[in-house]
Design a protein around this nucleic acid. Structure first.
Length: 130
DNA sequence: GCCATGGCTAGTA
DNA sequence: GCCATGGCTAGTA
């Protein structure tokens, strides 16, 4: 497990991007904003809605310059673990803790280190947002 | 050639 | 732990 985390860490604070959002980023932000408050979705689910790949979704969210306008904190890993935030995947980091606090303040519930199943947004909502 | 993914093996115990 | 995948950036020419 420590290795799984190490694989995704350490990460450096992402550079804010200066260019205009690409078409892909605009579509991603739109779908992301469709996740209701109190719910979460996954990188994989967004990728399906966008007909893209989970990796591309994660990469784009990593550099999301529109937080918190675009609620990228509502996107978590497929196994319903918290996932990354503000450039890092390390669950010990204050950044990931902030993501958790944000979600809890919106009504998302955790069971251990995972999000409760019934807090996952309906994939149809995402598809409809494209 | 990088990644905030995810799915799949291989190798250990 | 490997690697397919897709979108992007950096660095070269």
């Amino acid at each position: 497990m420590a290795k799984a985390i190490a694989r995704r860490s350490p990460s450096v604070e992402p550079q804010p991007i200066k260019r205009d959002p690409t078409l892909f980023e605009q579509r991603l932000h739109k779908v992301c904003s469709a996740i209701p408050k109190g719910k979460v979705s996954t990188y994989g689910a967004l990728a399906i809605a966008l007909k893209s790949s989970p990796r591309a979704v994660g990469q784009a969210l990593r550099r999301n310059p529109y937080a918190p306008k675009v609620p990228c904190h509502r996107v978590v890993a497929h196994d319903l673990k918290i996932g990354g935030f503000s450039g890092t995947w390390d669950p010990q980091s204050g950044r990931v803790n902030r993501k958790k606090a944000l979600l809890e303040s919106e009504g998302v519930r955790f069971v251990g280190d995972k999000i409760a199943d019934d807090c996952v947004a309906d994939p149809d909502i995402l598809a409809a947002a494209c």
